[in-house]
Design a protein around this nucleic acid. Structure first.
Lengths: 257, 257
DNA sequence: TGAATAGTGTCTGTGAGACAATATTAT
DNA sequence: ATAATATTGTCTCACAGACACTATTCA
């Protein structure tokens, strides 16, 4: 007697990046935005809503292979940071039939994307508002997406939280939840590893790097302390840039610990 | 045209605990061992080898539900620490047909297990030997299990490693790899959260707690520094125990940060 | 008495937080 | 000159590492 049922197996991939846009005040540095690549659905269910890039895992590949395949298809990038985030298998997550999806998190430098994106693929800015037990995400490009998530402590000894998707507008399936989980994971890793450098171009200024850290962590950093710590991880390259009405800045590259 | 294939979906659960066994030298504290619960397979493939508790995910449950169900079946425990570790979906991980498994990590206090374990279920001591690019695990009860894993850096910016199962004896499927991944995860969490307390009984001495930290982290800790830090997280309970030829010790309970 | 663990005290060095001071450029 | 960022310096405080010292029990 075989108790097992067969289910469909898919992958979804979080492609996070940083967008840099000039300010009105030309003296100020270009402002940076945390962003994510989404795809517009062209069929039911959730037709015309946005969703994560993804698809079914083929017979002869792992979900990891599939995620890399999807990443390459949408961005033509390989050799990017990519790691398994988690598997989503709520019974009703897809209204049609049961589909289990293993999600991956990737970080890219969007300047490295040379080709045009497809028409139905767009970068969205991510804005995060966090309260004690609630997280609100607002994703913006021409369209707007709202995600509202409840945060509930389930094991105080492990700082373990359960995140429950309360509400989402204009985004398909449980993808709002996955996006949130990815942000949580990214923030956690940013505190203990040099993961952030995966979002940076090869050469960057300390100021730009600090901007990116501040967006991801969602808090202001102390300038001198930041430079002190980061100095150990970077080395100067022979390039100085002038970005506005202020002292020019040295460019650096990642060196490692 | 439907590109999707259907696969069988299962769960495996890592049940880690701590074993405490008296020493020959009655003055010394009972020695502690890091341990894991394994099940003996009674059918092919891998007949008579050991494997993780697990099974297929039913139609009407998530892998999380299934993992909790398996945990309860083997230990009769509920309300334990349990979290998703990752999904294993190598094409040939099961020689019969493709089975994707989402693994969970749980930490239990084995003294809370009142019922007898089934005959084919046993606790194994875990001994970890780590070299630069290699990890060796030796699991022992009456039987012995050997696991040899290669450790390969794949993204230096994220401290991201790939763990490759090189060799395993007496353990089924890729379960050696999963056990290793669980240990890596547990160690990482132990550095930043109070996850270790999930392995402890309600009341414990600082010495016992230090022993457990030392086993999990695989290194000796400095006594005074340990007490200083841990003092913030525990509070005295009205109980003093005498365990041998030395000063009696105060019992504590977990308080939180 | 001595072996073993329990628990406290103290010195030192490192590193983060806070903030001030100086440098440089375009407008 | 001024606004803006770049870069360096310095003072303080918290805390981890190292190690010594005291306390208490039982064999």
């Amino acid at each position: 007697m075989d108790m097992s049922t067969k289910i469909k197996y898919a992958t979804d991939i979080l492609i996070y990046s940083i967008d840099s846009r000039k300010n009105l005040n030309t003296r100020e540095l270009p402002k940076k935005y945390f962003s994510i690549l989404l795809v517009k659905r062209n069929k039911e269910p959730f037709k015309d809503m946005w969703c994560l890039p993804g698809g079914f895992v083929f017979e002869d590949e792992t979900s990891y292979d599939a995620a890399k395949r999807v990443l390459k298809k949408e961005t033509n990038l390989t050799d990017t940071y990519i790691k398994q985030l988690g598997t989503y298998d709520d019974i009703k997550r897809d209204p049609r039939e049961r589909i289990v999806s293993t999600a991956y998190l990737s970080l890219v430098d969007k300047n490295k994307i040379k080709d045009e994106l497809s028409l139905d693929v767009k970068w969205f800015d991510i804005e995060i508002k966090e309260e004690k037990e609630q997280i609100y995400l607002e994703l913006t490009n021409e369209d707007k997406i709202f995600i509202s998530i409840k945060k509930k402590l389930i094991n105080n000894k492990a700082n373990q939280y359960e995140y429950i998707l309360e509400n989402s507008e204009n985004i398909a399936f449980d993808h709002g939840l996955i996006i949130n989980d990815g942000i949580i994971e990214l923030r956690k890793e940013a505190e203990t590893t040099d993961i952030i450098f995966n979002l940076m171009p090869d050469k960057f200024t300390i100021g730009e790097l600090k901007q990116v850290y501040e967006i991801i962590l969602g808090k202001q950093l102390i300038n001198s302390a930041f430079r002190r710590v980061i100095a150990k991880k970077v080395e100067e390259v022979d390039e100085i840039i002038q970005t506005g009405g202020h002292r020019p800045s040295q460019k650096f590259k990642y060196k490692g610990d």
